[in-house]
Design a protein around this nucleic acid. Sequence first.
RNA 1: CGGGGCGUGGCCCAGCGGUAGGGCACCUGGUUUGGGACCAGGGGGUCGCAGGUUCGAAUCCUGCCGCCCCGACCA
Length: 469
Amino acid sequence: MPNSVLTPQASDFPQWYQDILNKAELADNGPVRGTMVIRPYGYSLWEHVQAEIDARIKAAGAQNVYLPLFIPESYLRKEAEHVKGFSPELAVVTHAGGKQLEEPVVVRPTSETLFGEVMANWIQSYRDLPLLLNQWANVVRWELRPRMFLRTTEFLWQEGHTAHATQEDAAQYARKILHEVYQDFFNNVLALPVLIGRKTRKERFAGAANTMACEGMMRDGKALQMATSHELGQTFAKAFNIDFTDVAGKVQLAWTTSWGSSTRILGGLIMAHGDDNGLRIPPRLAPIQVVVLVVRDEQGVGDRARALISEMKAAGIRTQLDTDVSSSFGRRATNWELKGIPIRIELGPRDLAAGNATVVRRDTAAKSAIPLQGVVAAIARMLEEIQANLLAEATATQKKHLTDVKTIDQARDAAQEGFARLPWLVLGEAGEAELAQGGITVRCLQRPDGAISKSEDDPELLAIVAKAY
RNA sequence: CGGGGCGUGGCCCAGCGGUAGGGCACCUGGUUUGGGACCAGGGGGUCGCAGGUUCGAAUCCUGCCGCCCCGACCA
């Protein structure tokens, strides 16, 4: 079934990515450079990402709040590293209400400063800690080189902000989020394995004491940072006076964290699972898990299809009915494939006569005839198989694009194809700068067993380097 | 912001000095429908924008803007 709708990945991956944004009706460019119009199908994917991540954040004990879009410019300046890191990409409002503002207002690029202000107000005693907050919001960073979903000037995300009584508690919580929210979501919902580790000093968040991240491997061999979690030390506590009275009655500075994940995840979803025929959405994430395509509405096919939809709904399966017989069969099949619907059920007179449903898996393209009685249970099982298969495929892709090397030169070569892993002692900050000349960055540092090291001076640390989005 | 490529109906592209075309998509009617159907009719573009050259510019020149790729910056 050759499909000329999309540019093949092998011939031009970036063009394939552009094609799929259009053909799967995910997003358009907005009128202002770097902005995007997220279309209904693209937004429904984001809503499912949100729902899954939000549930995990709440399970980790954080509560949602909403803080303002506008931040006084002076707030950013309260933390030197932070303002230095963000000032090049700030959008600043200087005029409003027909007048020049006395103090310019920045459109939030991230909200550490506002949360700092709020936390300082809300925290009095150790009894108020830990304070675990999160917000879903849009942020603006004026990007030099935007790419849809991967790096847009305005994007949607969640940013968690917490304050703790001790450094140890903050460090633990930042790791808990990384594992129980992000890694769990990527593995079990997005069907994508991620490498987790510390960022180097160079790659660290502006103002953080330690940045940790989840790095995914895309099908073209480039890495994508898909979520981050920061230990902010007492940097923001100092800048905003986030202090509390401890059990002994002594005033102490709090330790804060922040952590985020964004619409970039959709870019990762597209590039990690999509193939030459379109998207492949993991069933647990899919807004539509099964589409029932009525081939021809004759001999009661439409009624049987509607009954099948009801049965699946009752079983908790997300479905869509396609009875649009004014479009040809091939066109409709292709469109659902482009959108990556995990399972397509084709129902026509021939199937009904045989008492079967024709069931097509999006991941493998395998087509099978399944007896209509019992089809719902079979579909439910198949959805889990598809979920597992996509994870297995992505795991194989990650493995294929991960090479252990011994020298910086070898790392440079290997990084053309994916992740290259070598001892951090061999690479070092000098080697990091050298590789950066070739567009290769250190994605993360981790222990030989893949764990996150407690210390950045751990002599066993391995550096994972790659070209990245 | 540096280097490269590209801007012509919604999408892909032809035209490259003589006043705008094709395919797909869209609308109407009909026939179809098991992998992007077919016939007939129809609507839609101040050729990215602004100057300039010319009797005449989509076409030549200059500047700007936008998109894509490769860098610097970043989730």
